[in-house]
Design a protein around this nucleic acid. Structure first.
Lengths: 276, 276
DNA sequence: CGATCGTTTGACGGTGCTCAATCACCGTGG
DNA sequence: CCACGGTGATTGAGCACCGTCAAACGATCG
């Protein structure tokens, strides 16, 4: 198990320092502000709060560090401010089932409220930062700042809708379709963060993607190659450039039972095999 | 599409009346009480509320009736009081992707809060009843009854944890393992409702189960036969008797990558092939 | 520069998807 | 009352897809 843990820590981010220095969760240099949190959650700006600048704990999480341990007591709720996290459950035989890749604005650790303990582990896939709110103070914050209370409820609602999307990703029949859905999903999230929806830097390993999609990691590799051969994208290790987003979305449509034309195999729509 | 809808209506419950009389959502004879709702959500009984008996809308939903339509505006939140519901998304080509089977105490329609419209359809699989709370009144109720507010938050938290469980079900490799996980999941939910965890009356069709598990419906049939041959259960159409719950749970353990002994095929643990 | 891990590609075998037929159940209409 | 059509459930045959095993390459770190 220790081996698995250090392995996970390794695979995330490893640059310029020994990993034991990197695997750390620490308070940020300057605290966050409540108004920032509300903006992150998609709430309309609240003038009173923006003016007051109420302080809120902000943590730095280095790539590879574990923010939440499966089984640990519920202590804090988190909202991702920047970076990427991997949420997963570890089964008895050591297999990591990835459940989600969380990005800015998403809630972490909320499932533990009703259970008392964390049902999932959460590790950072790159240097990240999160707002932290102790569960003991949750009630007080909700009462004191109704805008925060409302934003939290809406964020929870969106989070539940997200779970449905994740489910749809894994539901596809063909492996390439699953990967296509995953990439489109990632792309639209990048767009939501104001980033380019065409250039993706995958923060996670093939194995993690494979776990999320419910296929073998070799199959993920092969699916990348397939999508590239069909001209939908160009892939260089973890750098992915989406050449034909519309075509990729068309790929996404394939559903179980709708056999039809099997995703028009070998029919690149635009530039034919634009690889080099 | 009309054919699909009437088909769904048929499969749910068909007894003693023409189906067009049965497909209805209507107010119950007597309204529900807030204290009942809180108990349903698992909150500690609040003496003040139990005494007062604050009224709350209660709806009857006949088997086959659609409670929420995908794409409809967010109007009410619901909490299942009794019965079973199927939550699904319909893709353009008409394929129904089942996301969940909801039972007593579970929230319905909450995802629509943040989006403004329903991302899923919800139909009753048997005669059921739900508490209904207009979203316009949600804030007022939360402010007026802090116990309700708190219970809602905890219920949301549990609901999110449930999403993780659903994900795990579909993540299994072998089809029989998926079905085993589904049955164990159903069984534990029955136990939670005070029902027998060994005798299950499946409210949903094989096709619905197949959709949830991400396999073909023939495969579900075959998996049932397999699990029965191994002595784990006895199956008669939609009546399922779990003969060896412990063995079934052992089945559940198989994960992707943990090849091991492939679930000890053809090795019934207790009574050998108890089928007549 | 060697070690380790991640990624890619190949070969092969098995699981599950597709198509198809059969049976059982139910409600309808003769 | 029974024949009929419709739907769901079960089982079989055939084959494609994907999981497993294996090897090679590349990147990163010590």
């Amino acid at each position: 198990m220790a081996a698995t843990a250090s392995g996970s820590a390794h695979e995330g981010a490893k640059r310029e320092m020994p990993w034991f220095q990197r695997c750390a969760v620490m308070p940020a240099a300057s605290p966050g502000r409540l108004s920032d949190l509300l903006r992150l959650l998609g709430a309309a700006p609240d003038e009173a709060l923006v003016g007051s600048g109420v302080a809120l704990a902000l943590w730095q999480v280095r790539g590879g560090a574990t923010l939440l341990h499966e089984g640990a007591r519920a202590e804090c709720l988190h909202v991702v401010r920047c970076g990427t996290f991997k949420c997963f459950k570890t089964s008895e035989d050591g297999y990591e089932q990835v459940l989600d890749f969380a990005g800015p604005g998403e809630l972490l650790g909320f499932e533990a409220l009703g259970l008392g303990h964390q049902p999932v582990s959460v590790v950072a896939l790159e240097d990240s930062s999160v707002h932290a709110l102790p569960v003991r103070e949750l009630q007080a914050w909700r009462q004191r700042y109704p805008a925060f209370d409302q934003a939290l409820l809406l964020a929870l609602s969106r989070q539940m809708a997200r779970a449905g999307e994740m489910f749809e990703m894994m539901a596809a029949v063909a492996a390439e379709v699953r990967l296509a859905r995953f990439l489109v999903w990632l792309s639209s999230r990048m767009a939501g963060c104001g980033q380019s929806p065409r250039r993706l830097r995958l923060r996670m390993s093939r194995r993690d993607i494979a776990s999320l999609l419910g296929v073998a990691h070799e199959t993920v590799s092969r699916s990348f190659t397939m999508l590239a051969e069909w001209g939908y994208l160009r892939v260089d290790n973890r750098e992915v450039e989406l050449l034909d987003l519309a075509g990729l979305k068309a790929c996404t449509r394939s559903t179980r039972g709708g056999g039809e034309d099997t995703v028009r195999r070998f029919a690149p729509p635009g530039p034919s095999c634009a690889v080099s």
